[in-house]
Design a protein around this nucleic acid. Structure first.
Lengths: 191, 191, 191, 191
DNA sequence: AATGAATGAGACTTCATTCAT
DNA sequence: AATGAATGAAGTCTCATTCAT
């Protein structure tokens, strides 16, 4: 009975070495996919993780499973990050952080993009939306964001701007000005 | 051995049939990559173009060359489209059209994304920027866009939102509301 | 438009070199599978055929397709052989020849065995049954085989005894005596 | 490092749990190979036996060893079965039982087939031949089988017809009629 | 110029076997 | 003795690219 962990159930706890390898693989995969894009080879992941190819497939029986796992980890991290933010400016802060990450971590976005496609991660994505919803509510309560703005377009803007940052390779100033426009669009009209 | 047309030079004019084939291949490629994504097989392109695989490689010695050519064609089309638009609302109109296309034409964006990477198309992109700059100037002249807004962030927003539309699969309403936020961010503060 | 020839249609005639390679591959495959059994590797087939692995897969997109093709060729050969035989002793002669072949050609049987399974060759098998039926009728007409004996059991005996010869590695004498029992069972009781 | 039992020697007696495991593995293997064929995975065997993969390899250092063990067990069972039969019709009865089993137990035959090949089981096979010899003698003594018929061809017929039954998937009627021909061939000529 | 067959590196995946726990 | 994680060779198949026709 090997260890695949498709989603919720944890099964018996992994042996220490297996856990270590699983983590290493996940990290290597994140790096590799970030550098080479989503169709980097699984062998490369194995090489960087310092394990044999078979080990990767023991933990993630399919390349897609590996991608899904990275994605899940990534989304969880984002949710956690969102959870730490508070107050009316939290939403904007979140945008900034994410975009900054996107600039360096190709996978953040490339994978986010596939979330709705081959990979099936509805709940993980759902949790992110929820967290984002919280930030939006706070921002609207604090008067930082117009009340008519709804969650879907905020999500859409977030993803868009991450993609843009990723593929465009924005330098710092550009990133700030681009977000500036979006933030201005979210704020209530100066009265 | 002529006939590759890496970029500027035209060389001897192509034979009529060769010209026809080149066009067919380009069209087929656009369709195929739009449908199957950027790593659809070159054979599939040949099949749809109704030519043999060798012919594709005679015209485009590398798959990347083919992608670059599509990109170039696409950008030219966008420039033309931008040229037809006028007045203070032209910029917004352009955004809307592009996003609408992105929703259907996968390649529009997937390729746009690679513009800065493996593919080298500085001049084609430059021309698009120029056209966009014209629209921006008109919008600012007409008071539709704040004067502080500069071309790079407009370009960045355009690309971002196209990517978002592509990967998110936005329905009509969402697309309108998302663009609404961006347009609000571009407009002068209501005074 | 490559050349796969799933079954009936011939499509455009293969180029001379392709035809030569196809034949080489088929021959190599027959040999290899005969020697190493049905799960010998496709690479080995390619090696013996003196072509690259890709060539094998161009002609037979799947290993199963290759097996099916061999099988078809084999059955056709058997049908032809059956067609050459005549008279009341033809059936027995056919048995003998087949068993003799089985002793050397592992595939003759191993593949025959899979005829009803993964490989789908109903018509090819059907033609063999038809030919065998002809021999049976002649034998019964000539009084060499009892009239109650029907085609299915003759087919069953033929396959059985081929399998047996294959896996048992019968020497000449044993083969003769074994068939002797079966022939005795087919003949009318001595009156 | 004890516990492999290549053939004759027994070594120190196995611990109770080890013995139990050995039996479980053997049973699981028989089932699995019967269902999935001889190249089912060893992991599957372990899974069904409810032990870890390492345990399987501790008991049977090689997959082939496992196959050999199954074979041995199977042959022993056949010998026992043959021992229970008596009288002039015993031989025919034995044929019928075996063929019936073959229809359901894929391994019975698939393994029998390999008896002479990679697996080395001369004595086990020898004992089966001996038992079969007994039945043959009785049948000949009782006048059910012609005196010229010798053991090797009986063995050959048995194996052949098992193979045929296995791969052909005979229905009941066909099985009966096929054996009918063979029995007729074994019986003394009427008269 | 076009054709399409051939090439061969490389992708994903499986599985017998070894070895640390 | 048992466990189960790790190994890595090997298998099937894909596809960009080359080259004989």
């Amino acid at each position: 009975m090997p260890e695949h962990r498709p989603s919720g159930d944890d099964g018996p706890p992994l042996r220490a070495d297996a856990q270590r390898n699983r983590a290493r693989i996940l990290n290597a995969a994140e790096t590799v996919f970030a550098e080479l894009g989503a169709n980097a080879s699984t062998e490369e992941v194995a090489r960087r993780a310092g394990v044999a190819i078979g080990t990767v497939f023991r933990h993630f029986p399919t390349k897609n499973d590996l991608l899904a796992a990275i994605m899940k980890q990534l989304l969880a991290r984002l949710v956690a990050e969102a959870g730490e933010l508070n107050g009316p400016a939290g939403l904007f802060e979140f945008f900034e952080r994410l975009v900054a990450q996107a600039a360096e971590k190709r996978s953040v976005v490339e994978l986010l993009a596939r979330a709705g496609m081959d990979l099936r991660l509805p709940d993980a994505v759902g949790r992110l939306e929820q967290a984002l919803g919280g930030l939006l509510a706070q921002a609207q309560a604090g008067g930082t964001v117009r009340p008519e703005v709804a969650l879907p377009e905020v999500m859409a803007l977030l993803i868009s701007v991450c993609q843009g940052a990723l593929h465009g390779g924005w330098e710092e100033g550009l990133q700030k000005r681009t977000l500036g426009v979006i933030f201005a669009g979210l704020r209530p009209a100066a009265g």
